[in-house]
């Protein structure tokens, strides 16, 4: 991992905190699912390094996120609370993403500048380009970061979005979290290239590959892309090589398409563990801090769970709300 970054000790520890919080919240959600308390889980375990590294490189007060369904760590680091994530997970009325309308992990938070997303993949990339275009036209000092899996880069909308972004030089960062699988389909059956980043050449924009288990490396490339974007330099495509440690979702069983040996190998490149070691080596971390963090996160996850379990479900009669801004005459 790089020695130099503009992050101070507290920020580095904060980075680690969000990675651990996301991991533990994610684990709790799987438990709730197995207990029959949550119908569906889609997980970000393994991708925390990419997500937290990227979010920390943005300005939460001005920038926008257009995330996808694996980005729990990213939205946490961008300001969504554990309680809010849990409210969405359990489909409660106070869920800030959708008031219980969407499946879990369809993050969106107006006040926190996180765009609402859908399930058909890649739609958010075009939206992000549009948002960034508006930011450019309005003269906002802001960038939009959108994220997606590598499978999504095969959708026509990926191509349309990147082409449009480069022609209009909009301040957008397209972050591909390449975990090697589109549900069950390995990358080799998805595309005939090794690095998604080479696709940037077709749009005349930089394409950067970064190790996703290294949050500082991700931070640096995203920070550089942000500086470029905000100074009128246009879009950047970033490909973070990462891992998915779980099945695609709670309805999937990855044993049919991924060997346990391969998964065990992938887990050796765990961003959470690697970053903890880095902090210890940098003398920013020790057992005492680890114990304190674990207790804090545990408390936060417990609190979020209890809070969300007790929270009210949406009333059935609200089903027809928000079809239009104004009720039709």
């Amino acid at each position: 991992m790089p020695e130099n970054s503009d992050l101070d000790a507290e920020q580095l520890r904060t980075m680690y905190y969000y990675m651990v919080l996301s991991r533990e919240l994610d684990r709790r959600i799987w438990i709730l699912n197995r207990q029959g308390k949550s119908a569906f889980v889609i997980s970000g375990q393994g991708q925390e390094g990419v997500q937290v590294g990227a979010a920390m490189a943005l300005d939460v007060k001005t920038d926008w996120l257009a995330p996808y369904y694996r980005d729990m760590a990213m939205v946490l680091a961008f300001g969504m609370s554990a309680r809010e994530v849990m409210l969405g997970q359990l489909g409660k009325a106070a869920d800030p993403s959708s008031g219980g309308r969407q499946m879990p992990s369809h993050f969106g938070h107006r006040a926190k500048r996180i765009l609402t997303g859908s399930s058909p993949v890649t739609t958010q990339v075009v939206h992000a380009v549009g948002m960034a275009w508006a930011a450019k036209l309005k003269g906002d000092h802001a960038v939009v970061l959108t994220s997606l899996g590598e499978g999504s880069t095969n959708q026509g909308e990926f191509h349309e979005a990147l082409n449009f972004a480069s022609v209009q030089r909009v301040p957008v960062i397209v972050l591909v979290e390449n975990n090697g699988y589109s549900i069950s389909v390995p990358q080799s059956r998805e595309m005939a290239i090794r690095d998604v980043a080479v696709r940037a050449q077709g749009y005349g924009m930089p394409g950067v590959v970064v190790q996703g288990s290294d949050p500082l490396a991700v931070y640096q490339v995203v920070a550089a892309a942000r500086t470029k974007a905000i100074t009128g330099g246009g879009p950047t495509l970033i490909e973070a090589k990462t891992h998915r440690f779980t099945a695609h979702s709670s309805d999937d069983d990855d044993r049919s398409y991924r060997s346990r040996q391969q998964l065990a190998d992938e887990k050796k490149d765990d961003a959470v563990i690697r970053f903890q070691h880095w902090l210890i080596t940098a003398q920013l971390w020790d057992d005492e801090r680890e114990r304190a963090l674990k207790a804090r996160v545990r408390h936060e996850v417990d609190d979020a769970t209890e809070y969300a379990l007790l929270a009210a479900l949406p009333a059935a009669e609200t089903m027809s709300d928000h079809v239009y801004g104004y009720p039709p005459a």
Binding site: K92, L313, M319
Partner: peptide
């Protein structure tokens, strides 16, 4: 199905649809 864009997730809303 009622004229809302699509079926919501949370159980009470889904049942209502």
């Amino acid at each position: 199905g009622p004229d809302v864009p699509a079926m919501p997730y949370s159980a009470p809303l889904e049942h209502a649809f």
